[in-house]
Write a protein that binds this DNA or RNA. Structure first.
Lengths: 213, 213
DNA sequence: CGTTGTGAAGGTCTTCACAGCC
DNA sequence: GGCTGTGAAGACCTTCACAACG
């Protein structure tokens, strides 16, 4: 019978809770919503509502059992699966991502690095050789990669996405400053540095305007 | 006579509209909400509502005049001010950000790069010498930097933020996987790669679960 | 007694439907 | 006729208030 869909905003907070548990370490076997919220930067009632969607994992008068909660969050976020990740575009950004220790920490396997620049192809990053983009499809298939990270220039991004999708990748994280199209069955998320800076700029301008009268 | 506050969600879309106008170039002097929405990946009625907050810049039966709209978006986003930006933590990510051409394109001035690693201090990135973090405060003051970008490890992030704020920076973009505290007058935004990947992982796990029954 | 879990209220954001205008 | 601008409706998200319970 249909599980009701989980709110997207709540899913986006689960990684914060998980990270907070890790930061707090093993000192206490339980944690209250107030404390978890303080560390995660989320209101305590929000924490409780979010966790209640995962089922009743708290104990009234006591709090949440840390180990149980950690496990539940891992499961909900699918971190037990060891998803395969490929990175396309190995400039400074792609290199930073390929070397990002968080990937391994959360159980992701980086199984392919791709570029089209002959000066980069063949180099090793984090123990993995950069391959030409032409070999992307065969690696995705062979290594069962499910996640693709786009760190190419904007002009190349849509082409790369189309190829990733065709090769079987079903989740894509886009760092290129471009709006990309994907089929409905594919999840696309965007990290848009340019937009973020412009939003900061807007706030600065507003504050300045307010101060000036 | 207070200006009503603009919806945050709408502000976050303005950079997309601006980018879309640039992508479309000078071919047409006007653009309809349908077309702009298609390029920006936003519903046409959403485009109209968003732009209506900026005042009546459209012409019924015709569309929006591209040049006028571009200028209005620039103004609202404060891109005419040439804000000074400093980057702290010049690893691969910090280097990528320091070299990001989008910064100059939108009128930001990168005025300082800082690190604590002696192996990095003194090196040049994008024509700018990396300085030791100790000199951050004096550069922020001297160059009037208003925006700080954190690309340090998580453990150092709160310390760096505190120093940036004390030095006078009022907008901060945090790439470190940490929840940071700032005074209310400071705008803090977060780019959280680790969370994004975990959200993608969740969607993969859900899809797999659904397929399996 | 302290803390969770949750219906209800309140707020924000998006979509709809259509009036208004060129 | 075609397109913008906008009040109203609807969806989504957060906060509140308090019942439930170990």
């Amino acid at each position: 019978m249909g599980k009701r869909a989980l709110p997207a905003a709540m899913i986006a907070r689960l990684p914060l809770y998980l990270r907070s548990l890790d930061e707090l370490g093993q000192r206490n076997p339980t944690i209250s919503s107030v404390r978890l919220g303080a560390v995660a930067g989320v209101a305590a009632t929000q924490v409780r509502k979010d966790l209640s969607y995962l089922g009743s994992y708290g104990v009234r008068g006591v709090g949440y059992r840390v180990e149980e909660l950690r496990e539940r969050l891992h499961r909900e976020l699918g971190l037990t699966r060891g998803w395969g990740v490929v990175v396309v575009g190995i400039g400074n950004l792609g290199t930073a991502l390929a070397e990002y220790s968080g990937l391994r920490l959360w159980g992701f396997r980086v199984v392919g690095l791709f570029d089209v620049d002959p000066a980069r192809v063949g180099n090793k990053v984090n123990g993995l050789r950069i391959k030409h983009l032409d070999r992307m499809e065969s690696v995705v298939e062979h290594e069962q990669a499910e996640i693709g990270i786009i760190a190419t220039p904007a002009a190349a991004a849509q082409l790369v996405v189309d190829r990733l999708v065709k090769a079987g990748v079903r989740s894509i994280l886009n760092f290129a400053p471009a709006v990309l199209q994907v089929p409905r069955a594919v999840t696309l998320r965007r990290v848009d540095v340019s937009s973020e800076l412009q939003i900061l700029s807007h706030h600065l301008a507003r504050a300045a305007g307010r101060a000036a009268g």
